[in-house]
Simulated assay, not measured.
Amino acid sequence: MTHEKEVTNYHTGEVETVNDNFVQLYIDKLDLIMEMMSENPTAAKVFTWLLKQMDRRNALVVSQQALAEALNVSRMTIHTSTKYLKEKKAIDVLKSGNTNIYAVNAQIAWKADANGKKYALFDAAVYIADSEQDKPLFDTQLVGHAKPRPPKKQRNKAIS
Rank of each mutant, 00 (worst) to 15 (best):
A103Y: 14
M76I: 02
L94P: 04
N21T: 14
M37H: 10
E87M: 09
G13F: 07
T99F: 06
L51A: 12
Q65D: 09
E69A: 12
N98G: 03
A68S: 04
V23R: 12
A44G: 06
L137S: 01
V15K: 14
T2D: 10
L67M: 10
D31I: 09
N98E: 09
I27Q: 15
G116Y: 13
P41I: 01
A158R: 09
Q141W: 05
V126I: 11
S38I: 08
T8K: 14
Q154T: 08
Q24C: 07
M34A: 14
E132N: 08
N9I: 01
W49M: 04
K45G: 09
H3L: 07
N72I: 08
V126W: 11
K95W: 11
K117M: 13
L94T: 03
F138A: 00
K117L: 04
L30R: 02
Q107Y: 08
E69G: 10
S81E: 04
P136Q: 07
A146G: 11
A120C: 04
D130L: 01
G97Q: 09
A129H: 13
K86S: 09
W49P: 03
H3A: 08
E35Q: 11
S63K: 03
D113E: 13
Y26G: 00
T12K: 03
L94G: 04
T80N: 15
V73S: 06
K117G: 01
L51G: 13
V18W: 15
T48G: 12
E6L: 14
I128F: 15
P151S: 03
R75G: 03
S160T: 13
D28H: 09
L67N: 01
R56Q: 14
T77C: 05
P151C: 03
E35I: 07
L137Q: 02
A129W: 10
D130I: 02
I27L: 12
G116W: 14
L94A: 06
V104P: 11
T77I: 00
N115R: 13
N58Y: 06
A103M: 14
N100Q: 09
A106R: 13
A146M: 02
Q24F: 09
E14N: 12
H3C: 11
F122Q: 11
V15A: 15
V15F: 15
P148C: 00
T99P: 02
R75K: 06
Y84I: 07
E69D: 12
D123L: 01
T80S: 09
F47Y: 08
A124W: 11
E132Q: 07
I27V: 15
A66W: 02
K89I: 06
K88L: 08
Y127D: 01
Y127M: 05
E14S: 12
L67C: 03
K95M: 12
L60E: 02
V126Q: 10
Y26K: 03
P41F: 02
N115Y: 13
M37R: 05
E6I: 06
N105C: 02
W110D: 00
H11E: 10
Q141H: 08
K147P: 15
A158K: 12
T140E: 07
Q64E: 05
